[in-house]
Nucleic acid binder design. Structure first.
Lengths: 248, 248
DNA sequence: CGCCTGATTGACGCGGTTCAACCTCAGTGG
DNA sequence: CCACTGAGGTTGAACCGCGTCAATCAGGCG
């Protein structure tokens, strides 16, 4: 099984799979050398907590592989996922001691970590990294605001459709060869994670999935594999402007 | 009417009311001089659109006085506010041509605008501004994520309480002298704006406000002025951890 | 005065939560 | 080999919070 791969990454930044998209993307050789000295890799198993809200943060990090979930929990247990960290995404906040949110590994996750203090110093001295981090943060802010529309105004059916559309689009972009038939992908997250993400209960998620299946919007093979015979139809169900964005 | 006040601000940055909190907060005299040359003030009337999603952005800007709302609208008219811009908040996105969201003046708004291109250049040359902007963007991202919990998981009553708590805290910090009696402030936004912000209808906003009033959580003078006799009580109603955050 | 916009209040219905039973399937151990 | 177990998922029934529709009110303005 594809396990001990984490050690594979403990090499030079030049070989790094997220080299051109992470916070270090625009760094020159000299800056890269400094980062190289600061970094250390760490692997988390699926389901393992990476940090809790309020914890002291010794590191900031980039996600190298895997998916991590940022979430918040209320005292009575209500939980809301507020962000998804994919490979190349940055985790942690320069200038802040304590973590603001919980972060959990959704799949196995490999992090490229930097000690926070030296990294902050680097941020002051080297505008390259700061500039890249600003761009990434602005992108995340836009994504968060898109999600606010979904949480505040969309119906359960639209929420599910939106999520499926987003995943489908991402999978399609993610270097899959274009299968000639209908789009298809595996949901690698549980119903519970979907519910936490969408601000719904697992029962509603389940019901809406079967409803979409009965209406022919999606197909399902087993409980995890989703088929999408008509992507524009799905976008329509999601309540988004049918701009597509996949092909043009 | 209190119109032509905008000219009042066309002075040196040293006198600016948001001098120490805006994007220019940490600037030295030399940088300030450059900004001084780039800036121009513009006033928008309450209700007036500042920019539409998709519009070309010629400027970035700081809010000097007033409140502006960032929002998104679906085809069928459902609307969700995704951000509130108060004095000192920054508007616009360096490195992007088109606006991603609608921005509307909720009250009369005075902007301190900078042409985008020169500002971007300044951002590259002067790390001070970039660093400050990164801090502010990270703050906004945190706020957006807090808001996602509200939109996805909180009840109508909790939503209203949360909004009132946030406004109260913000007003209290905003240089008001600490009135000895109960906290009090004016809601400078309409019920509709509150509803758009909270993902509710105006009817529900209205009902929950009267409910909170009848339960003694808040007091009201007229339709706009809110009294808060017991702030921790309000925080409790908001479902937040009662950490306060106002005083320490 | 009439008109209009913003706000309040009531009656009603629906969508999504809650509570609960049941199903499916992979592990595990006898 | 099969019974047992527990986690993830589906389905049903009842409830209720909030949206919808509609009537009414308050205040500002021509």
């Amino acid at each position: 099984m594809a396990r001990q791969q984490s050690v594979q990454f403990a090499k030079s930044c030049g070989d790094c799979p997220i080299r051109h998209r992470a916070v270090c993307a625009n760094c020159e050789a000299d800056e890269l050398t400094i980062l190289e000295g600061l970094k250390s890799y760490k692997t988390f198993a699926a389901g393992e907590p990476i940090i809790w809200a309020g914890d002291h943060m010794h590191h900031v990090a980039s996600v190298v592989t895997g998916v991590a979930a940022i979430s918040q929990t209320m005292e009575d247990g209500r939980r809301q996922m507020v962000g998804l960290l994919l490979p190349s995404d940055f985790m942690g906040r320069p200038g802040r001691e304590a973590a603001a949110f919980d972060i959990t590994a959704a799949t196995e996750v490999v992090l490229c970590r930097f000690e926070r203090k030296p990294f902050e110093q680097l941020l002051i001295n080297s505008p390259t990294i700061g500039h890249r981090l600003l761009q990434m943060t602005l992108d995340e802010l836009d994504a968060a605001r898109e999600w606010m529309l979904l949480l505040g105004r969309k119906t359960a059916r639209e929420k599910i459709s939106s999520l499926l559309a987003i995943i489908a689009r991402r999978e399609a972009v993610l270097g899959q060869d274009l299968t000639p038939g209908p789009m298809a992908f595996d949901l690698h997250i549980t119903r519970e994670a979907m519910a936490d993400y969408l601000g719904l209960t697992i029962e509603t998620v389940s019901r809406q999935l079967t409803a979409l299946r009965k209406d022919g919007v999606i197909g399902m093979e087993g409980k995890r594999r989703i088929l999408i015979p008509d992507f524009p139809r799905l976008l329509d169900e999601a309540g988004d402007d049918a701009d597509g964005g996949l092909v043009d």
